[in-house]
Design a protein around this nucleic acid. Sequence first.
RNA 1: GGGGCUGUAGCUCAGCCGGAUAGAGCGACGGUUUCCUAAACCGUAGGUCGUGGGUUCGAGUCCCGCCAGCCCCGCCA
Length: 624
Amino acid sequence: MLSILHELNDRLKVALGQAFPAAAAAAEAEGSALDAQLGPASKPEFGDFQANGALALAKRLGMQPRVIATALVEKLEAAAGFSDLCERPQIAGPGFINLTIKPERLAAEVASRLQDPRLGVSSAAEESEAQGRGLAPVIVDFSSPNIAKEMHVGHLRSTIIGDSLARVLEFRGYQVLRLNHVGDWGTQFGMLITHLKQVAPEALSTADAVDLGDLVAFYRQAKQRFDSDEAFQSTAREEVVRLQGGDPVSLKAWHLLCAQSRREFQQLYDRLDISLNERGESFYNPLLAAVVADLEASGLLVSDGGAQCVFLEESSAHKLPPVIVQKSDGGFNYATTDLAAIRYRFAAPPAGDAARRVIYVTDAGQASHFAGVFQVARRAGWIPADGRLEHVPFGLVQGEDGKKLKTRSGDTVRLKDLLDEAVERSEADLRRRLQEEQRSESEEFIQQVANTVGLAAVKYADLSQNRITNYQFSFARMLALQGNTAPYLLYALVRIAGIARKGGDAGVIGDAGNTGDAGNTRDSNQITGLFSKLQFHEPQEWALVRHLLGFDAVIAEVEEELLPNRLCSYLFELSQVFNRFYDQVPVLKAPPEARNSRLALCRLTADTLKLGLGLLGIPTLERM
RNA sequence: GGGGCUGUAGCUCAGCCGGAUAGAGCGACGGUUUCCUAAACCGUAGGUCGUGGGUUCGAGUCCCGCCAGCCCCGCCA
């Protein structure tokens, strides 16, 4: 409905100019045009849209709000074509203008979406092409585990939220660089390499000689020796120097450790169907000296206690710690790496990505770090005027006791274990239900459904919450079959698939969001024939129509605000509206003149759910 | 000590540019199945939007103070 919203807004703007020419011209001259404050209606009984501008303009124009509203409505109604778009506007309360779109127009929108694999969402790529300019890539920096360590619950939110944001941006037509900024460089490699050289020297001379097996245990052993053995410690320190000096044997050992970790991470990414390009901290290593030199040249660098720092501009009298870019021992640290990354990502190729939007999905605890680093980058002139640099923070994962999520024994929860448990619980639940309903299904079906539902539940539970707040993790809640959960949404889709099997044409589009491509285009002649004369009469049909048409606006919102929970709410509400329709309005048993229109609604609902869930990284099921 | 985030129904949470009577879900209580998967639907009860000021025609939303919880705070990431 974004196109209708824009059309109405344009019409309101014209009406404002006609009704109040002097004030409109004056406002225009000031650079702040009069605003009709058009937005979606706050309640269904108010229609489709409401314009609140009359209230705000009352003081400025020195008139009663209702008088302003009346004048506006008069001009609106007099304009050519308005009555084809909209019912007579209603003035309500102190001066709200309520607008209801004509049923024929809504039905036409539904018909057009049935033929549109993008479901009404415009493509940024096509838009920029039409305007004859290029579209800069967007970078989403997410997941970012550390080499030689395990992925744990702390990586869950970044990985899931980052993937979903990337999918939405990809669907909108952007080229998205999904960067995995893995921790693959730093002093811990001294001890790891030293340990490797001592316990598995053959790995360094023979190709693929050794499978390191449990890397976590390996890391623990190395750490334990580092902490207890002084000789080991000094060897490890020398090893760091060798590695940074480019010693071939040290590099080989380093590669080996990275490759091993990469394989383990990849298993989880495959399982979650998440794609990432690894570009770890080591990538920026050769660029660090230039970062410091650049800061020096721009006069931002200050030596303080032997360390090279940039002091932050403070908005008030509060004293912020400086950003240290070079330690007193000459080494660089994480702030330097982050600065090098920002510089590279905005810079022109070949020594840069030429991005214009860079998004960091990390926990909220790093907010002040990023605020500092972003400020330094800005003052250093590395961010173009049209460049956006955004930290997308999220809260902690907590247990049901409200404390940081831990296992019973107090350890960090491994991501693998967490996913396993979700799938196991989902399987147990499914088996219990099959027994209760005396259904018999193949083992393959059970595994497939349990896996899909379990992983969907984990993803959806995370995404459906506003990411800023801490997130209380609960298997029971996320796997619940009712409420705002993945199983509830998946079930709505299963119901539609059931209608399709029993004779209704559902012809749902393919797994759109998963590929960033909306899938098969349909035979438009066939569709036009089938759904050309849509007509709706029941309130449940209209509620569904109106909700379906809101999809494009939600995608636009997620693209801008980077809040996937908005998409989740939309899909949940869509499922609710659909279930009401399904419960109260027959589809297959409807009289022929209503049947096709209802089938069309079923299909568009399925398409929308499937696409929407795909953008959350959640695949769907035909039966469950 | 400084900074950030959070505080909305018993619980978990939404609440978009400030807009009409603050919304869901769970839980509780009551109802609905010869009919497309009842994993659903319908209804009832439940609120000092932490608190005190301010701005505004209008504040859960913006500004200031206070209280509480969590997180961060110079050479780890």
